[in-house]
Structure formats: structure tokens, C-alpha cells
Simulated scan of single mutants.
Amino acid sequence: MYYDIIVLGVVVSILFSELTRLSPAGLVVPGYFVLSLHSPMRAAYTLLIAFLALGAEKLLGRVMILYGRRSFAALILLSFLIDGAIQASGIWAGNPGMIGCLVAGILARELERQGIVRSLGALGVVTGVLSLLLLAMGHPVFGTQGVWR
């Protein structure tokens, strides 16, 4: 069921992207967000890591050349480093952890490329549509009986 949700998320993301010319923060990100709807703190933590990685990448861009693949690689690595630093420091007691290992970096890339409002708006719409499709198919999405079970 896990892979089915991710594949359905990719299909819905592609359709949305073709119809609106907006990327829903990457093709796989909405599927992973739907998988974590039962844990809103996890989604919020992933968004926080994406924003922190984007800010750190902007600072790094002042002292080194970051564009294209370099920028994307920097965002992925920075999201890992920031998550590791937060977990190691114990700043956030009961740290919920990021959604997936690459989702924050992919999300940060789309925030940079497309803008915050457009990216988060598109992500919200596609996540909502995907959630409704899963509910219509009989998959529980919210609550303690989330799609992980």
C-alpha cells in the first residue's frame, strides 16, 4: 500500500503540474506528506528543516557558487546536517523526525525555484486531492489508524 500511495501521488502531481504549470514541491513530496497526515508535527518539522536548509543555502551562496545540481545537492546535504544537529543537540524534545530522508531537500529546492507561496499552495492542493482519493478508495488517512498501519 505504501508504494501505491507514492505512485498515485506521482500521477496526481504530474497531472496537477501539467494542468497548472506549478510543481507541487516535487513529484514524490505530496505522497510522503499524505503518508504523514496522522502526524502533523512530523510535517511541520519537515517544513522547518526545508526552510532552514534554504536559508543556510542562501548564506552559503554568498561565499561559493551554488546553482543547478550544486544547489540541489547542497540543499539535500544541508537538510541532513540540520536534522542531525537538531537531533544531536536535543533542542527539540520528542523530535518527530523528518518525512523521508530526501523530502526536506526536495521541498527546499522547489521553494527556491518556484517561490514559497506557489510551492506550498500547490503542495497543499495536491496533498488534499490525494487524501480525498485515498479516502474514496477506502484507505484511512487521518488519525491513529493512518496509512502506516
Rank of each mutant, 00 (worst) to 15 (best):
Tyr2Pro: 00
Asp4Gly: 14
Ile5Met: 08
Ile5Tyr: 03
Val7Asp: 10
Ile14Lys: 07
Ser17Gly: 11
Ser17Phe: 04
Glu18Ser: 09
Glu18Asp: 11
Glu18Trp: 08
Leu19Ile: 13
Pro24Thr: 01
Pro24Gly: 03
Gly26Tyr: 01
Gly26Phe: 00
Gly26Cys: 10
Val28Arg: 00
Gly31Cys: 02
Phe33Met: 12
His38Cys: 13
Ser39Phe: 06
Pro40Glu: 04
Arg42His: 05
Ala43Val: 15
Ala44Leu: 13
Leu48Val: 06
Leu48Asp: 04
Ile49Cys: 07
Phe51Gly: 08
Leu52Gln: 05
Ala53Asn: 07
Leu54Ala: 13
Leu54Arg: 14
Gly55Ala: 12
Gly55Pro: 12
Glu57Asn: 13
Glu57Lys: 13
Leu59Tyr: 06
Val63Gly: 02
Tyr67Ser: 15
Tyr67Thr: 15
Gly68Asn: 10
Arg70Ala: 04
Phe72Val: 13
Ala73Ile: 13
Leu75Ala: 07
Ile76Leu: 15
Phe80Asn: 13
Asp83Pro: 04
Gly90Asn: 07
Gly90Arg: 05
Trp92His: 06
Trp92Gln: 07
Trp92Ile: 15
Pro96Arg: 09
Gly97Met: 11
Ile99Glu: 04
Gly100Lys: 01
Cys101Trp: 11
Val103Cys: 03
Ala104Met: 05
Ala104Ser: 11
Ala104Val: 06
Ala104Gln: 11
Leu107Ile: 12
Ala108Gln: 12
Arg109Met: 06
Arg118Pro: 06
Leu130Val: 10
Ser131Gln: 03
Leu132Thr: 07
Leu133Pro: 02
Leu134Glu: 10
Leu135Thr: 14
Pro140Met: 02
Gln145Phe: 07
Gln145Ala: 12
Gln145Gly: 15
Trp148Leu: 14
Arg149Met: 11
